[in-house]
């Protein structure tokens, strides 16, 4: 992986590397040990602070909160993909009257922070239940990013694809719908999935407008006097749930990409724009 920077190590370099490894291990073990020690000293491992996962009611609440997080994610993802596809097509339109507004809208929603959008829908426009504001804001922001991703995907396809489609007599909308977008989606799949991971994580912003999602449930358990206010344990558990969900999504992406590579129908692109986009997806 790091073959660019380093030559194959010689005997002296190997000894040096071993030394680094020992120092590195010591440092990491030291830091983790210190944190665990602080946990221990401040009673974060006490039975009282870990009693909450045993209660059936708490488990059911956690499950329903998880369901709410997944619901916001599912609707947000579905609408964002639709929004992205429509506005990507709009940005690639031959008509200025469609192209320019599409570009402006995409730029606008990419520039406004998600928090401000969520507040705007919830407090400014009073959309009602928090879930609507969360889903609409997630759709607009991630949809705009996905529109850019789709557009980059379409532009990276060889021109022969659209030329051939026109040659067999397809209309513009058919070329986009049947030939270009499906291939762009495949080519950009890693970028799309990593944007969906972003969407899943951003659903936690619903916390700010009291949407009953996972993080909100975490603070509800964390403040409970009955369990000794287990803020640290609950953060650890909920963090682990989020990490597991995101890793599953990422794993899905790698799996699909591998399957893609075996598939001969996919066109090998000369340059891979996907990697930059993934690295930048915050």
């Amino acid at each position: 992986m790091s073959a660019v920077l380093f030559d194959v190590p010689g005997p002296r370099a190997r000894i040096r590397h071993r030394l680094y490894a020992v120092i590195g291990t010591a440092a990491v073990v030291g830091v983790i040990g210190f944190v665990v020690y602080r946990f221990w000293v401040t009673g974060q491992f006490s039975a009282e602070k870990w009693s909450w996962p045993q209660y059936e009611f708490v488990q059911l609440q956690l499950l329903s909160a998880l369901g709410n997080t997944l619901r916001a994610f599912a609707f947000g993802a579905l609408f964002a993909l639709l929004f992205g596809a429509i506005f990507a097509a709009g940005q690639l339109s031959d008509h200025k009257i469609i192209r320019v507004p599409s570009m402006l809208i995409v730029e606008l929603f990419r520039a406004i922070p998600l928090v401000v959008m969520i507040f705007m829908f919830h407090y400014g426009l009073s959309l009602g239940a928090p879930v609507y504001s969360v889903v609409v804001a997630l759709t607009l922001y991630n949809g705009s990013v996905l529109a850019e991703v789709f557009r980059a995907g379409v532009l990276s396809l060889p021109r022969g694809q659209s030329e051939a489609a026109y040659a067999v007599g397809m209309r513009k909308s058919q070329v986009m719908r049947l030939v270009l977008l499906p291939q762009a989606v495949r080519a950009m799949l890693p970028a799309i999935i990593s944007q969906l991971v972003v969407l899943l994580k951003d659903s936690a912003l619903g916390f700010l407008i009291t949407y009953e999602e996972l993080l909100n449930e975490a603070q509800r358990i964390g403040r409970a006097f009955e369990f000794g206010r287990p803020l640290v344990p609950v953060t650890i558990v909920v963090g682990a749930i989020y990490i597991a969900m995101c890793l599953l999504l990422t794993w899905l992406a790698t799996y699909l990409e591998k399957r893609n590579r075996r598939d001969k129908k996919v066109i090998e692109l000369e340059k891979k724009p996907a990697e930059d986009v993934i690295a930048a997806a915050v």
């Binding site: 996962p53 209660y55 059936e56 009611f57 488990q59 009955e226």
Partner: peptide, 12 residues
């Protein structure tokens, strides 16, 4: 497994 053996009731 955790759900199956959930505790009920309140400590207070």
């Amino acid at each position: 497994a955790l759900t199956a053996c959930g505790k009920e009731g309140s400590p207070t």
